[in-house]
Each structure stands twice: as structure tokens, then as C-alpha cells.
Design a protein around this nucleic acid. Structure first.
Lengths: 185, 185
DNA sequence: AATCATTTATAACATACGTTATTATAATAT
DNA sequence: ATATTATAATAACGTATGTTATAAATGATT
């Protein structure tokens, strides 16, 4: 009864995700996205009311992507917050444009950095409980410090001012954890 | 022999600086800038070859502004790196758009974060020497840690995820300094 | 007062954007 | 085969951008 759809919502969203990852969210325009998806601009506006709606859905996709990234990140260190921090920094190093969008832009409508990092399965809460288990008396305050530190390294990597290797980063985070621990007794 | 100039280079640069400070560097266009300066777009192109040249000169102005900001920032704490960190974080809080431009963008052609922070009178070097004087054995490594921490807080303030008051920030930085010191013996 | 050089304002150009109108295409029902 | 209908491509509209062309204004020199 009608023509079959050749360009799906998924095609468009995938193309948008690639662009966000490679060139950055702000370089996505109706025409460049259409080119990336190999079609005209029409399929985009069939699927999305406008570019803003696409942007919102893309942002959510990136949130999901980060959650999956963290969930699948191999555990390399048992010191509280170290693995979390390592994953965070590596995410920034490997996906600078996506990190920028999630953690260093104002696209985040309402949700805080904490909301996004903690995610739907309480990544941060788990770490805080872990720290408590390891004998940390004030794990929330300790997390805050680690968090600021980790965020600093990640943001520096975006501008090319942090480029430690993984093992160096682990050492740095371990040292920091123990340093912050010491002064809390 | 000729008409007198009414719109000076300074007028334009000042207007651009205000826009960069209030709305952000990326919102400056030939027309919006002209409106801010109260003229047409012509005086801009008389003084600058193109908008990029203006952007470069504006960036340099912001570098100078930061240097002056830091130079005039009252010394509130003698713990090494604490006053530097406090000034840095307050600059980010008070001038988020300028901080973004200087320390969290890729407009910085060549010069690193360190170059800009250290400035023309060696702000960082002085602090490192100060730390050495206070008995710090590895002041460069300690600076790096403090620096990452400070940068994290500043970047978080940009996205509304850090809003400690000045005295709280001082405490936080003091604690961090002593924490990092401890683990270096 | 008339001329001339320079500055400024007004218009215009080419380009890119989001979005919409129109046309062409393709798959199904008749 | 033809009509119907959702999909996609092409064109177009309105707006904003950087930049340039043209015209108006202004102040000194003659």
C-alpha cells in the first residue's frame, strides 16, 4: 500500500552518534547529518519533529552509552573510587567529544554530573558502600574529593593537558585515595 | 584632511571583551559586536582584517586580564598552592565564560594550560619555590596533583556542580595539600 | 565654498542554517 | 495496469553568518 522505509530512526540516530563522537555534538546539522546517513534531510524530519528533538534523543543515547561503557569496564583495582575514576578518565581520553557533551556542557537539562555518573544502577553509591566496607569513615566527603580530582584529570585530557598512561593514572588515583583517607582520621 | 575616527580599536575590543565575558566568545558575530559597540560592521573590518584576527587579539586580552586578576588577588592563605587554587577557582566562578575560553577550550593555539596559568611572571614557579621553602621535597609532583584538583573544581563550577564558598574552598585546598604532602614522605 | 581623503552606514553577495513545499519514487490494493 | 499512499529527493523560504561594494558623512586643505 505504500513505499517501504529505507532510512530508519536507528540509521539517523547512529549517524548522529558517530558525528557526536567524531566531530562533536555542535557540528551536527540537518544537512551534514543527512550526508552521514546517506540520504536527504527529509527522513530526519519525518522521524523527528525538529533538530532539537533529535539532539535530546541523541543526548540520552550518549548517557546510555556511558553507562554501558562503565558497566563493561574491567575492574583493575580494588581501592575504592579508583576503578571508577580510571573508567571516567579513560572515557574522556577515548571519547573526548562525548565526554565533553555529558560532563562539560550545558546540554544536561536538569541532571547533574552526579546523576549521570551514578546512572541507573547507582555506580557511585556502590563505590561509596565499598569504601565504607573498607573502613572509610566519611565516604561521601572522600568521594567528593576524589570526584573533583578525577574530573580535573578528565577535563585536562580534553585540552591535551593530561596524558598519563593507564598504570600511571591508577597509581595517581591510589595515592590520592590514601592521601585523602589519611587526613580524615 | 579627513574624517576623524569615532570608533577606535579599543572601543571594539572592549565591546568584544564584554560579550566574551557575558555571553561567551562564540556568540560574538560581526553584527552583534557592532551593535554592542554602537556602530555598523564597517569599523570592525577597518581595524581587523577579519573576525578571526579579532578573535586572536581578544584571546590575548583575556590572557592579560587573567594575569591581572591573579596579580591583584589578595593573598588569603600561606599554604603553598592554596592561594593560587583559590584565585583560579574564584576566577572560574566569577568569570565562567572567560575561564572556559582560557582553560577549557581549544582556542589556545599552542600554549598549554600551564603556560597560561604560569603567565609572564611565573606564578606557578613562584608557588613551587614557596612549597620547596616550606619543606616540600617534590614540589612539582605535588603541584601537578593540586593543579588537577583545582582544575576539577573550577570546571565543575562551570556546569553548576561546584558551589562551595570561599572559606570552604580554602579548607578543601588546605586539606588536599596536606593530604598530598603526607603520602610523599 | 569647493575639493579631497578617510571614516562610517547602508546594501548587497555568497554561504550555511532549520524548516517546509513540491515533486518523484516505490510498494501495495484494486 | 492503475490508483493510492507513505517515503524520499529536490527546491525553496527565511534567517544568520562573514565579507565586500557602494554611498553618505565629516573634517582638513585649498
Amino acid at each position: 500500500m505504500a513505499r517501504k522505509e529505507t532510512i530508519t530512526k536507528m540509521d539517523i540516530l547512529n549517524a548522529a552518534f558517530e558525528m557526536a563522537s567524531e566531530e562533536g555534538f555542535e557540528h551536527i546539522t540537518a544537512r551534514t547529518l543527512a550526508a552521514k546517513a546517506g540520504c536527504s534531510t527529509q527522513p530526519i524530519f519525518r522521524v523527528y519533529k525538529n533538530m532539537e528533538e533529535l539532539g535530546n534523543e541523541l543526548f540520552e543515547q550518549v548517557v546510555v552509552y556511558f553507562e554501558a561503557y562503565y558497566a563493561n569496564f574491567p575492574r583493575k583495582n580494588d581501592t575504592p573510587f579508583v576503578n571508577l575514576g580510571l573508567a571516567y578518565i579513560r572515557f574522556a581520553q577515548d571519547n573526548p567529544k562525548l565526554f565533553q557533551l555529558l560532563f562539560a556542557s550545558e546540554k544536561r537539562h536538569g541532571s547533574s554530573l552526579y546523576d549521570i555518573l551514578n546512572g541507573s544502577n547507582g555506580a557511585v553509591v556502590k563505590e561509596i558502600n565499598n569504601a565504607k566496607f573498607y573502613g572509610c569513615t566519611n565516604p561521601s566527603a572522600l568521594f567528593m574529593k576524589m570526584w573533583i580530582f578525577i574530573h580535573g584529570a578528565a577535563c585536562m585530557s580534553l585540552t591535551g593537558d593530561y596524558d598519563l598512561k593507564e598504570d600511571e593514572t591508577i597509581t595517581l588515583l591510589e595515592e590520592s585515595y590514601h592521601a585523602f583517607m589519611e587526613t580524615m582520621r
